[in-house]
Design a protein around this nucleic acid. Structure first.
Lengths: 157, 157
DNA sequence: GGCAGATAGTTTATATATCAACTATTTATA
DNA sequence: TATAAATAGTTGATATATAAACTATCTGCC
């Protein structure tokens, strides 16, 4: 459905460029809302899931990841990671540990409980992703990805 | 550039469906961050700009829009509109007025200052949108929009 | 006419996000 | 080696977002 109709706008969006931008933004927003709902019964948020995925697949299990590293991979401000890890530490999903040899760092690591939650939710999440995306063929997805990559290329500072 | 490389991930994203989803979400996020930066010097946020656009083009100038209407068109929770309009009222960008005949409603309207800010920023914004999107041809944009519409169709409750 | 349910808006609690300003530590370099 | 610059993390102010619980008002219907 056209975005205008979906949002109940009486006047149209005037340029295709603007319509494209609003479509990307709004679809991302809808996907985020759906993800939020999806993770709710598991007691975590979509953002917390993303952080746990990084700890699971982007870190040596021993070493964990620094908050600075998480900040770069999540593309959020470092101070956001501080409060996010605070909440997740309180929920016993992750721990902060001193790193020997560099006293500036924290190593953030999954707790056994964090790993358990991740194991429990991950398969269902991937199935849900497949269900949401099955409206597109593989080649349509690749074209979509290509267009979005080019847009981001043009956004780089 | 591939998302994995852009985010500095060492391990790949395993499915095309997930890669597509993450591309949409991340690109929307980048566009939002860019919009935020763009509006900063004008003393408004991207969200406040969107609300003012609705007041300008989706309302009779006299009647304004209800907060419930804004909530639906911005696709945000009504309580979010309460605090948003609070801040914008404080910044003298909009006013709340009683609607004769239905005491439940507020009519939210642009102030002269709000209209002035909008006039001042709108052309520059539309030019910026064109610049960001000029990496795609018109037909590529239409294909992109079509794919995103189909994804949202599948997301509907 | 009166009441059930829909609609509009607010309040409070919580999560996510930015930025500026700060401390602490490590690295680079003059 | 002393110090400047870079890096890591935190704190506090502010904006955006949701949800639940609440008040107020209006509409539909018996």
């Amino acid at each position: 459905m056209k975005l205008e109709k979906e949002l109940g706008l009486k006047a149209g969006i005037t340029s295709v460029a603007h319509e494209t931008l609003l479509n990307i933004y709004h679809t991302g927003d809808m996907l985020k809302k759906r993800a939020r709902q999806f993770f709710l019964p598991y007691g975590i948020t979509d953002v917390q899931f993303n952080l746990m995925e990084l700890l699971c697949y982007q870190a040596d299990r021993e070493a964990g990841l620094s908050q600075a590293g998480l900040s770069r991979m999540l593309v959020v401000h470092p101070s956001n990671v501080t409060s996010l890890v605070d909440r997740m530490e309180k929920a016993e999903l992750v721990t902060r540990t001193d790193v020997p040899g560099d006293r500036r760092y924290n190593a953030v690591r999954l707790t056994p409980k964090g790993r358990e939650v991740l194991d429990h939710v991950e398969d269902a999440y991937m199935k849900e992703v497949d269900r949401v995306m099955e409206v597109l063929s593989e080649s349509e997805m690749e074209i979509l990805i290509g267009s979005l990559e080019r847009i981001r290329e043009g956004l780089r500072p």
